[in-house]
Design a protein around this nucleic acid. Structure first.
Lengths: 304, 304
DNA sequence: CCACGGATGAAACTTACTTTCACGAGGCGT
DNA sequence: ACGCCTCGTGAAAGTAAGTTTCATCCGTGG
């Protein structure tokens, strides 16, 4: 497969826990058991000895060490220290029942709202924290000077892709989004040096998106991946990797929080690109806003 | 074996560092050397091994252990962890929050990211705060028992509408979204008692959406409006009004934060509906997840 | 001058951490 | 279907970290 020079920074600035949960799916089953324990209660994990933790995770010490290495630590003691630090920094969750992420069976609407809002807001914040401005900068640069920008995404990520496309279009950048693989592949085949291809996939395993991104790459386009999992397959076909930091709670309940995280990243890129040429972008935005004015009623409210 | 009968000191009010420097004079000379190192740079000390620290303090490991006991710790590892935690807490985020909302002309990417994330997160939180659970409950009830659900939205709100449609569909509710007015009107004309129509418009002034919602209402459907402005025209054709709380900042139009707020509301409704019938919803989700499985590539991969 | 007690570090010891290795399961190509 | 090969795994060996023990040193007071 393609060599992967990747710029996805091996730093985990946005917090160790976030980093670990992002790596979760790329870990082996036994390591995942360890990871889950650690994420569930970092402070407790920090207090445990390696043997203790291994036992709790029903595995051997060796696996715990492997886990440490997998998440970028030198060894167990270092992990312990970092965990302790992390746990201390973490602001006490306002509401204990809200924190786990999962919604209790008997929950009433108020509880559900609080839980969702908390998780959504946190996904946004944590994503921003761990975003590497340097990588963003390069992506923005690429987009700003691209001849053409293709954006790919399937399912829930498709909405995000589509949203991004619309945004870029509104400030005068030539951007496309394709809801269907075949069209996308066709388009990718026509990309070349100086073009940009952006693939969005929460799991990073959506084969359609990967395939298209790979195609784009072989044509010489700059490829960008937006995913929640920094070691997922999609990152192997991307020149730049941007990660979100959503710890998806309940099952694949439709990538609830991750969507918001993705949108936040999109917004950042968008504003970054727009900031490159303030006046032109503003003019374009005003023009497009005016265009839909006739579809607005009672214009005397706030901003139309 | 009996531990050193150290006096409790179970609590070190005001922090471990303060505690240590407090009893510094009561320590033996060699222990004081250790203490001074620790107090001077807790974070660094936490990273050191006991031998390392002993050497730095020009003493033996034994003395370091004695020091640990003297300050009320069980042993060196515990001290390390406490130290790490302490150091982490101490480092208060000095970053002057980029409040205000608008992005200064000369802003760099890091600033842009911080600003956007802050506003996005706040929009989500504030939206949740002002959401009326009672109204949500009724909307959820209506959706849960609806024969059919139509969702309308244009432009950026269209993505949200589309997202909601997909979500409801995934848990087995019959939901539709129409990107175009005419189709939407046609559909609305076919709604009846027991059906639900949801109109999404950030400004609340999008005539297309209002028109369609009105149509739906005259046909006897329950109408729901999701908007940022509780007094906007759309609210006049809605039985239930749900509001977001995004203060859109000036020019980054595109309804950046409001979109996230809308999605949060959508999530709440979605989870609310899903919670009505847990097992069926879960089964449906699992089925749909399985359906796309063949489009996923091996997720279990370690670093290349 | 010697007995005594606290402080201290060397070394023995224990526990924790790390590495190595062999086995077994599952995938892949033939 | 077969065998090869890779990968995940834990047992056990090996190393390093932490802890205890104990002899020594040193100052003090008898």
């Amino acid at each position: 497969m393609a060599k992967s020079p990747k710029i996805s920074a091996s730093h985990e600035p946005g917090g160790l826990i976030v980093h670990i949960s992002g790596l979760l799916p790329s870990l082996s089953p036994a390591e995942q058991r360890v990871a889950r324990l650690v994420v569930a209660d970092p402070a407790a994990a920090a207090r445990r000895t390696i043997t203790d933790l291994a036992t709790a995770a029903e595995t051997s010490e060796a696996t715990v060490i492997r886990f440490c290495r997998s998440v970028g630590m030198d060894g167990y003691p270092q992990l312990r220290i970092r965990l302790a630090a992390e746990a201390a920094r973490r602001v006490e969750p306002p509401d204990a029942r809200v924190v786990g992420g999962d919604i209790p069976p008997g929950a009433d609407l108020a509880q559900i709202i609080a839980t969702i809002a908390f998780n959504d807001a946190r996904a946004v914040e944590e994503t921003a924290e761990q975003l590497d401005p340097a990588v963003c900068e390069q992506v923005v640069e690429a987009i700003a000077s691209a001849g053409r920008i293709d954006i790919y995404g399937a399912g829930a990520s498709g909405f995000v892709a589509s949203d991004f496309q619309q945004k870029l279009h509104r400030i005068g950048r030539i951007a496309f989004y394709f809801p269907d693989v075949h069209t996308a592949l066709t388009s990718a085949a026509l990309l070349g040096r100086g073009d940009v291809a952006i693939g969005i996939s929460h799991t990073g395993t959506t084969s359609d998106v990967i395939e298209v991104l790979e195609q784009a790459r072989t044509r010489g386009a700059v490829t960008v991946a937006l995913t929640n999992f920094p070691r997922s397959p999609i990152t192997e076909v991307a020149d730049f990797v941007l990660t979100t930091a959503a710890r998806e709670t309940t099952y694949r309940s439709g990538a609830t929080a991750s969507r918001l995280a993705q949108l936040t990243v999109v917004d950042c890129l968008f504003v970054g690109v727009a900031a490159r040429n303030r006046s032109r972008a503003r003019k374009a935005l005003e023009a497009t806003a005016e265009a839909v004015l006739s579809h607005r009623v009672g214009a005397n409210r706030r901003r139309g």
